[in-house]
Write a protein that binds this DNA or RNA. Structure first.
Lengths: 247, 247
DNA sequence: TAGATTGTTAATCGATTAACAATC
DNA sequence: TAGATTGTTAATCGATTAACAATC
């Protein structure tokens, strides 16, 4: 193999920080919008504003991919779209399987945002025979029994779990056994998976709880409604009297 | 006001790191499960395992709330549930409005995970008269025209945006104007809001893109499909020939 | 008392940011 | 050339982690 193969800029390859990877899709989205508007070039200042970050961070992030800008000019929109897409692995199509066709699975099956970004919903799966066979978004829902076959034949490497929480771990185990190495988990459970399998989670109620925390600070009140549980008494402390909580 | 009011442990109050706040809901979920099983106490090691973090991080996180454990014993499950709930502001009920009743809004309206965690879906709203009036999860969908009234009367402080992307900013503006100060945004857009308004976003396709990035590294291939856009020529460089990309 | 486990310290690591030399 | 803007450096900030004294 020629030496050129390994002569990547030092920062490329494995070395892209996770925080940067997580922002690349934001840049890509902003760039796609510019591309559709026919904008040929964009400065780090403009692109950063469109993506909702500051320009120093944007430039640092892009520098991990290489030197794709032009000083005094900015970045070529199309070229940068391509470079980021390639870095994220979106120049190929990723077949995705959705497991658990309840309300959320149903919504995701119909979600247009996947197809437009290099993902293809290859299969909808459910364990309930009352659901299998139904047609959703033009696809028949298949039974979980077909999982292994589908993964094999359609080269599915990403699974999306939208089952109820109690079923999620078992589904994850089956996905892993079938050869899937990336899981997007919507069930509110911690999944345990072997090394080498990536799990990302989306938890709707966790996001709300984080908002509630900040909302509480804003309103200034420290509201305590309902009974306050007794602090468990420790040996050496005076008894079982519920102590007054700091208001 | 008595001085005791301000004698909080130094680390309490404003000082809780964001990363810690984001993990408190995880601990709460794990603790709730333990509570339901009737487990009276738990060690940092056990709780950390249940929440999917390491125990040093868990102890550090909990130490920001106060000293609620007992050395040699662990944490009282019920007591810690209460303390975390209080810190997150979940001892009160948060009325939530969902705006945009498409597939996703529909799914969220039916999502049980909200009610069980101190949130109450107070209203479903849509701008489309073909949708308003429909009953979903036992509630009638109201028209956007009623937004201001609903926010006022039901004391809604959290809005969930599940509209298509092009409508999201306008909806956010109206929510803010109506007095809402926390927004959970599912639309794939960067929202601009005034200081003091919190926005959190959930973007399904971004999560998939992050998975795709890592998936690509695993498979080892650096697949380039389709045409490679020409690198924009810079003055001083040789012409417009598309350069060969690093494979 | 001996064993267990917390709460905290301090070291390390990674991410953010401002500033500016390089260069178009 | 002068103005604009990148790419990079270095300082700062925040988060993670191991280790262990405190203490139940």
């Amino acid at each position: 193999m020629a030496t050129g193969r390994t002569e990547r800029p030092a920062q490329r390859g494995r070395g892209i920080p996770e925080a940067t990877v997580a922002r690349l899709p934001l840049y890509l989205r902003a760039l796609s919008a510019l591309s559709e508007r026919g904008v040929p070039t964009v400065s780090s200042e403009e692109l950063a504003a469109a993506a909702g970050v500051n320009s120093a961070k944007l430039r640092k992030d892009l520098s991990y991919l290489g030197s794709y800008g032009t000083r005094g000019v900015g970045y070529d929109v199309e070229y940068l779209v391509y470079q980021i897409s390639r870095e994220l692995g979106l120049t190929q199509d990723w077949p995705v399987a959705i497991i658990g066709i309840g309300n959320l699975g149903h919504a995701l099956a119909n979600y247009g945002g996947f197809a437009s970004r290099g993902f293809r919903v290859a299969a909808l799966l459910d364990a309930d025979r009352a659901v299998t066979g139904q047609r959703i978004a033009g696809m028949a829902v298949r039974h979980m029994d077909d999982l292994e076959q589908i993964v094999r034949e359609d080269h599915v490497s990403i699974g999306v779990i939208t089952t109820p929480a109690p079923a999620a771990q078992e589904v994850a185990d089956r996905l892993v056994a079938a050869g899937i190495t990336s899981i997007l988990n919507f069930a509110p459970t911690v999944l345990s998976v072997p090394e080498g399998v990536d799990v990302r989670k989306v938890d709707l109620s966790i996001e709300l709880q984080i908002l509630a925390f900040h909302e509480q600070r804003k309103s200034g009140l420290d509201p305590v409604a309902g009974p306050v549980p007794a602090r468990p008494s420790k040996p050496g402390e005076r008894g079982d009297l519920p102590e007054v909580m700091p208001a």
